[in-house]
């Protein structure tokens, strides 16, 4: 955000990668890729690639983090060293700690944490290739991993970012738009209830632009939730088909 691009980012209504303002990058989701984990997911959103794994409900360590009436939800978001253009040093940064926290706050409303008192649900998210939208992709992947782990939930959580580029509101920013755009507004929501579970924003937008952005995100989240659902159903159906042969 803030920099200046040396070329226009939108030409005749088309973005640099050929998309229209409201078009999502192609994306795919696969559930159940880590055998050791209770639940897992691999997700690609354009060139952004994420792997998520869920372990739990398990014992809370250290013990003092234990909560008497609900599960302790632990989210670790990290970028592996070769996921960014300059090598990213391993280990947590201030950025990854903040993102881990907002992802936790985005997922917690959907999980029936009170079903698992005195336990820990551990969610690990690794960004393997970063091209903007890593936190929203992380939320989408973590949700599928949670469902795959059989965790009790009220709804799925779907997530996408809108932004402002050359005074236009657009959906699902990729790297160049993220670097040179005027604003970025990631959203997560529960599509069935319409409740929003993540909002962050940086840049400069009018209230009307924000309204437009949220509307776009809502529609996109419904679309994403359908693919999340399909990823899970496919995994379990596939087992059935394979085994009937």
């Amino acid at each position: 955000m803030g920099g200046k691009s040396d070329k226009p980012l939108i030409v005749k209504g088309k973005r640099l990668d050929g998309r229209t303002a409201e078009e999502l990058r192609p994306f795919k989701i696969k559930a159940g890729i880590i055998k050791q984990a209770d639940g897992s997911c691999e997700l690609e959103f354009g060139e952004t690639k994420v792997i998520a794994g869920v372990y739990g409900p398990k014992k809370v360590l250290p013990k003092h983090l234990e909560e008497n009436t609900r599960a302790f939800l632990k989210v670790t978001y990290s970028m592996i060293p070769f996921s960014t253009s300059e090598r990213n040093r391993p280990g947590p940064s201030r950025r990854s700690k903040e993102i881990s926290k907002v992802i936790k706050d985005a997922l917690a409303p959907a999980i029936n944490l009170e079903k698992y008192p005195q336990t820990c649900i551990d969610i690990h998210i690794e960004i393997t290739n970063a091209n903007a939208g890593t936190r929203t992709s992380a939320i989408n992947a973590a949700t599928v991993a949670l469902i795959d782990a059989g965790i009790e939930m009220r709804d799925v959580v779907a997530s996408i970012a809108a932004g402002k580029v050359e005074d236009q509101v657009i959906l699902d920013l990729f790297q160049d738009e993220d670097n040179f755009g005027q604003a970025d507004l990631p959203i997560a929501m529960m599509p069935r209830t319409g409740e929003i579970t993540l909002v962050q924003m940086d840049g400069d937008m009018t209230a009307a632009e924000i309204k437009k952005a949220i509307d776009m995100c809502e529609k996109a989240c419904l679309k994403i939730a359908k693919v999340q659902r399909k990823a899970i159903i496919d995994e379990y159906k596939n087992n059935e088909v394979k085994n009937n042969e």
Binding site: I34, K35, E47, K49, I80, F82, S83, S85, E86, N129
Partner: peptide, 22 residues
């Protein structure tokens, strides 16, 4: 992986490893 200069994903039975070069 497009951000890495080189990358590989290798499976050995159920063991799976990702490697990247920067």
């Amino acid at each position: 992986l497009s951000q890495a200069n080189g990358s590989a994903r290798v499976k050995l039975g159920d063991t799976e490893v990702l490697a990247g070069v920067k």
